[in-house]
């Protein structure tokens, strides 16, 4: 019973993430991919990769923006990569904030970039905590069964 309850909770949690715009259709695709094929833990694995990756990338971007002379091309590349990975995971909010980032480094607007990075990080941390909650629920379910 506990497992069922937890599962419901997990589903509700994921549904809320969708509702809040943290996730988009791509995440569903991943879920389907996981459920269809015999690849348990696939979603968690990818999301885990994403979290590590995004953490690293945001750190790198912050480092670049701290430089006296900002290499906007590098910022571009990093944001681009983050956008790609967030899109692949379905982390919609992160993806959207990456897109917002675009106009700032395009204009080589350093302050704008710093602000955009702050927004991006916010979104990322929010998403991350949601994902972590999701992980915890999954682990509990696994423990129960």
């Amino acid at each position: 019973m506990a497992a069922v309850a937890l599962k419901n909770q997990l589903n509700a949690h994921i549904a809320s993430m969708f509702a809040a715009g943290f996730l988009d259709k791509q995440f569903q695709e991943l879920q389907i991919l996981q459920d269809d094929g015999s690849s348990p833990g696939f979603v968690s694995e990818v999301v885990g990769l994403f979290i590590d990756d995004a953490e690293k990338i945001t750190g790198l971007i912050a480092g670049l923006l701290d430089q006296p002379v900002v290499d906007f091309d590098k910022v571009d590349a990093l944001v681009h990569q983050l956008k790609g990975s967030s899109a692949s995971v379905g982390a919609q909010r992160v993806k959207l904030s990456c897109e917002q980032f675009h106009s700032y480094y395009e204009a080589k607007n350093r302050d704008g970039c710093v602000m955009a990075l702050a927004l991006l990080r916010n979104e990322f941390y929010d998403s991350r905590s949601k994902f972590q909650t999701m992980f915890q629920l999954e682990q509990q379910i696994e423990a129960c069964s």
Binding site: D36, G37, S88, V89
Partner: peptide, 16 residues
């Protein structure tokens, strides 16, 4: 792909 996330997803999709 240099991005591990994308690569992982891509790989899984291709395997599928």
């Amino acid at each position: 792909d240099d991005d591990p996330v994308c690569l992982k997803v891509l790989e899984t999709l291709l395997r599928r």
